[in-house]
Design a protein around this nucleic acid. Structure first.
Lengths: 196, 196
DNA sequence: GGCGCATATGCGTCAATGTGCATATGAGGC
DNA sequence: GCCTCATATGCACATTGACGCATATGCGCC
């Protein structure tokens, strides 16, 4: 029950509705955990059945009534228990990497297009992380535990996106070099400077 | 059908049995795509039903007979079609990051232990990548497309593990600093040197 | 002789996830 | 009047994945 725990983790910050959670999973925590609203509503029902969260209906006019979920003491305990178990290192599972593994059996042009799209995507995400970092932590320090965790996460995210973007760039260059000559001399490792 | 395509990608290299594929998914391609043998056998049946691979039984004595699977022309075409579609950027989904997001609601000591275990894990993997790189690409260059793809993948893997290991280290330091004083001044970004 | 290990293939079940569809309504544009 | 968007919740179905279990045999260890 990993998504359930991610939801509990979100609710430690403040009570939220399923709709708000879906938006959260589309931005902040969603940078490293994707989930759409259907998944979230389903998981919320389970969590409520187990007594980990409590739903309070708020009557609204003009909109459907909303259900604001709050962590119960049991939910807090469950989260702490889950967090005390050793974590499982996740594997990457990226289509793009599988394709590179079979580079000699696929068409290069669509791959190149894909790499360019991915380069842009990861650059955008990197810029987004940096933007949030500057806004939330202008002096690069955190006060309190909650902030510290988020600062570290944002930095990791920024570095990760930077690295993948660099990788896309280098792969594109290596592909270009390859189409020129048969034998390839790709870039040496560690030569590229990381700016930003 | 992502696992299926990963299997097709593996079979471009050479014909293999389910058992060999399972081992492959435990080492080379397994660095960025995990799958156990049950999943692989099930997927092989599907691929065979679709005519993407062909099984040839090899009678053995002392061991159960083995089924060597070969890519069919249809399978090759299917792989090329799959590889020509835009790839979907994968999200990380790492328990550890979710825990850091709720840093103020969990126990620090188990987290610290977890971080230390993860640090060791990612260092091991990094060393493993570097070992393979030195062995397969002693002069840092690749000949042919297949090798180029694998060289790039190994470098990406090495860098990724290095980055995550650094992250674990920095987080541990930040946690230590936090337990000392209430307000935290974590390391500035980009100050750590990357060796190796 | 029994135990575990490597080889080799596979089934069954359940949890987790992804995709599409359904419902309800007010606000604002055409 | 109709369409779309934002808000707000949810079901149904299919795929994927994780985990345990089953079968069969030779080899080496104690």
């Amino acid at each position: 029950m990993a998504l359930g725990d991610a939801i509990l983790a979100c609710l430690t910050e403040r009570p939220m509705t399923g709709y708000e959670l879906a938006k959260t999973f589309d931005s902040s925590i969603g940078f490293f955990w994707k989930a759409d609203h259907q998944q979230i509503y389903r998981e919320l029902s389970k969590l409520r059945d187990r007594g980990y969260i409590q739903g309070r209906e708020v009557v609204q006019s003009g909109k459907p009534n909303k259900l604001v979920y709050t962590l119960t003491p049991e939910g807090r305990t469950a989260l702490r228990h889950w967090a005390a178990r050793p974590s499982t290192p996740a594997s990457t599972k990226d289509d793009l990497l599988v394709r590179l593994h079979a580079l000699d059996s696929i068409d290069i042009e669509p791959l190149r297009a894909d790499l360019m799209a991915r380069l842009e995507h990861h650059r955008d995400r990197h810029a987004n992380y940096e933007r949030i970092l500057k806004k939330r932590f202008p002096d690069g320090t955190a006060e309190g535990q909650l902030d510290l965790g988020n600062l570290l996460l944002l930095r990791l995210g920024a570095r990760h996106e930077q690295m993948v973007a660099d990788f896309c760039e280098e792969t594109l260059e290596a592909l270009s070099a390859m189409s020129g000559k048969a034998t390839v001399v790709p870039l040496e490792d560690g030569k590229r400077e990381r700016k930003g």
